[in-house]
Nucleic acid binder design. Structure first.
Lengths: 213, 213
DNA sequence: GTATCTTTACCAAATGGTCAATCTTATCCC
DNA sequence: GGGATAAGATTGACCATTTGGTAAAGATAC
């Protein structure tokens, strides 16, 4: 980060311009000029606020991940099945429909930078941390559900990892292959393949058990 | 394709040089010059055999996918459980260890171009076709197993799709996040979450049922 | 000799980045 | 309060280098 205590709005505006440019041109064809065009002020101002393209992209990654994580705070005092569904929906469909129309635009950019991470140690680390947060969120929901007796005592690590993987695959498929129904398919698949192992056999758990769909 | 009936070795050499360059520099930093450096002959020869960078990359994608698909022919007269395991292993670990040491190098390049597909209609189509082949292979194995009575009569489309997704997620995780154990985890997860729904309850199927691991 | 293949020298455009000049804003002294 | 002043923010002109691509001259095989 090239910090600049004053004018944080400008930095933020540059971040948003970067998002738009990245969204439109893709990472490999991203020129600083493209960002400049999405930015109301002068292009060279970018160079004043960031130490070159590399620093800009790194900062943007932090910004993108930070945004994603700050939006993914959910209350967890609900019915465990609903909590789990909620988390999965949020990952697959975005936050409460309506608020953010650009959820998939963000996802596209995220996904592209994610693939790019194989060539950048620092980015890889950032994504690893973030990935662990997402998986941890799901693990948390599972753990809470098990404590309540709504879920069977499965291996929360394996299960959360698996769900996270499926979510990521569906997103990748939707984005790279244009499979618009991939998220819905993934939801159904998780319900079909994962939920059974979560559902307890006893009546106690069945009481808070969600209807199959 | 910019066809050239003669000198197909040169074209192939360029494809391999492209692979190496892509592997080393990544798509976004790939210069025609980098390919030239991996290529024994002159750099400009590339421009003689291909109509510019774009055509070169497109041809390379065909080449890469073609290679992948030609290597993935397996006999299917084995035990269905072994056939399924074999297919999954092949996707996750590569063909019989030893032969191709660069399996993951190829995968990395594949994965990167895959992410890139969101920006290129033609590439997206190529990947869609290829994706369908991979999924179709698994569907085929499932269908054969069901006919033999080794598998329960599950929805082969949903199940194959799901397995394919999990495989892709594990590869992505291994490549982008450096999770070396992702493929093994995915194998275990498929065994834990998918195999149960495949295993028939009756003794007939159990006879050819694989031991859990 | 001629058609395919290969190389060398070269180029125009694109691109990340700099620099000095200008505009804004906060600070200080009276 | 008001003007001098310094510090930060912003701009437009400019540049060195990189990069994809070309044209014409050599090879090489048939």
């Amino acid at each position: 980060m090239t910090a600049s205590q004053t004018a944080p709005d400008t930095r933020e505006a540059i971040m948003e311009a970067t998002f738009r440019a990245l969204s439109e041109h893709g990472y490999s064809d991203l020129r600083v000029r493209d960002i400049g065009e999405e930015f109301e002020k002068s292009r060279t101002l970018i160079h004043y606020h960031f130490d070159g393209k590399h620093d800009l992209i790194s900062s943007f990654l932090e910004y993108l991940i930070g945004q994603y994580e700050s939006q993914s705070k959910l209350g967890d005092d609900e019915n465990p099945w609903e909590a789990l569904d909620g988390r999965i929906d949020q990952c697959l469909l975005g936050p409460e429909l309506g608020e953010r129309f650009d959820h998939w635009e963000r996802m596209k950019v995220y996904h592209e930078l994610f693939a790019q991470a194989q060539h950048n140690e620092a980015h890889r680390e950032a994504f690893n941390e973030h990935y662990e947060v997402i998986r941890g969120n799901i693990e948390h929901v599972l753990r809470a559900g098990i404590e309540r007796g709504s879920f069977r005592a499965v291996d929360v690590e394996d299960t959360s990892q698996f769900i996270t993987d499926v979510i990521h695959a569906a997103r990748a498929r939707r984005i790279s292959l244009d499979h618009d129904d991939a998220p819905e398919q993934a939801k159904r698949a998780i319900a079909a393949f994962v939920y059974p192992s979560l559902a307890p056999a006893d009546a106690e758990g069945a009481r808070t058990r969600r209807p199959s769909d």
